[in-house]
Amino acid sequence: MAIILPLLVTITALLAAGIYYRLAFVLLDPKRNKPLRHGRRNPNEPTHLMIVLGSGGHTTEMLSMLTRCVQESDPAQKLHWNDYHHRTWVVSEGDNLSAARAKEFEEMASPLSTQEDLMAGKVRKATDIGPGTYEVVTVPRAREIHQPLLTSPLSSLTTMRACWDLLQKHTTKTREGHGGQAGEKDAPDLILVNGPATATIMVFTSILLRFFDVKGVSTRGKMRTVYVESWARVKRLSLSGKLLRRVVDRFLVQWPQVKREVGGRVEYLGVLVQ
């Protein structure tokens, strides 16, 4: 017993140190790999954008920001929608309105990007890549309205399981030790969220996948995360913002006083909704 106890303490300390080091590497490494590819417009290396919608105000703000980005006249701030060959829209179960609005946005944005390429003389790029593909995927709600708090952990775990499966839905085998199979959809390169509970669970699920480097998602720089705090948060962060502030790759707020209050890695780029 005198030997076993110190041995167990040593093993526990080593495990704790290993977990801490791995988490620090996954979450805090300023040089975290960008997705390994040879340009967004390479048809052999499809890019994958995932957008998590909430309901009501969250969906309205997200679509407002995206609309502003794709219609932006400044090339430095413009989002070329078709640069992302595949887009996955995530909505909560029963949120038919958000699903419908995501489809409406695709019908607006995809032809717009292709038309701009053609007008700019980029016929080859437009015809090689085209509008890309998209899907609207439903996951269970993390918490229903008026749901008792005691049952919330169970429903959140159900949501996490669905997010775990969804994040791996398009994960391909690797080639040359790191890159995905040419021409095949791969895990999300970028996950864009703005606050709903489902989005928070999605981000933490992506961290788990990166922690264990499932199918090389961490090695290959997949699942970079961007969080945009709600425009309605004028003075302080939302609960989702507090939970995600230290774990996402970029954290954006829309009011300068929030930036001053929170500090750290928080970025203020002005009001992003239109």
Results as ranks from 00 to 15, higher is better:
Thr67Met: 01
Arg68Gln: 01
Val70Ser: 04
Glu72Asn: 05
Asp74Lys: 11
Pro75Ala: 03
Pro75Asn: 01
Pro75His: 10
His80Leu: 09
His80Val: 04
Asp83Leu: 03
Tyr84Arg: 03
His85Pro: 02
Arg87Gly: 09
Trp89Gln: 05
Glu93Lys: 13
Asn96Val: 13
Ala100Met: 04
Ala109Met: 01
Ser110Tyr: 00
Pro111Arg: 13
Pro111Asn: 11
Pro111Asp: 06
Pro111Glu: 04
Leu112Thr: 01
Leu112Met: 13
Ser113Ile: 06
Thr114Val: 15
Gln115Phe: 07
Gln115Asp: 11
Asp117Asn: 01
Asp117His: 00
Ala120Gly: 05
Ala126Asp: 08
Asp128Met: 07
Glu135Tyr: 00
Val136Thr: 15
Val137Arg: 06
Pro140Glu: 02
Arg141Met: 07
Arg141Phe: 07
Arg143Leu: 02
Ile145Asp: 15
Gln147Leu: 03
Pro148Phe: 08
Leu149Met: 14
Leu150Ser: 06
Thr151Val: 08
Ser152Tyr: 10
Thr159Pro: 12
Met160Ala: 14
Met160Gln: 11
Arg161Asn: 09
Cys163Lys: 04
Asp165Gly: 05
Leu166Asp: 10
Leu166Cys: 08
Leu167Tyr: 10
Leu167His: 05
Thr174Pro: 12
Arg175Glu: 10
His178Ala: 12
His178Gly: 15
Gly180Ser: 10
Gly180Val: 06
Ala182Gln: 07
Ala182Leu: 14
Gly183Val: 06
Gly183Gln: 12
Asp186Leu: 04
Ala187Asn: 01
Asp189Tyr: 03
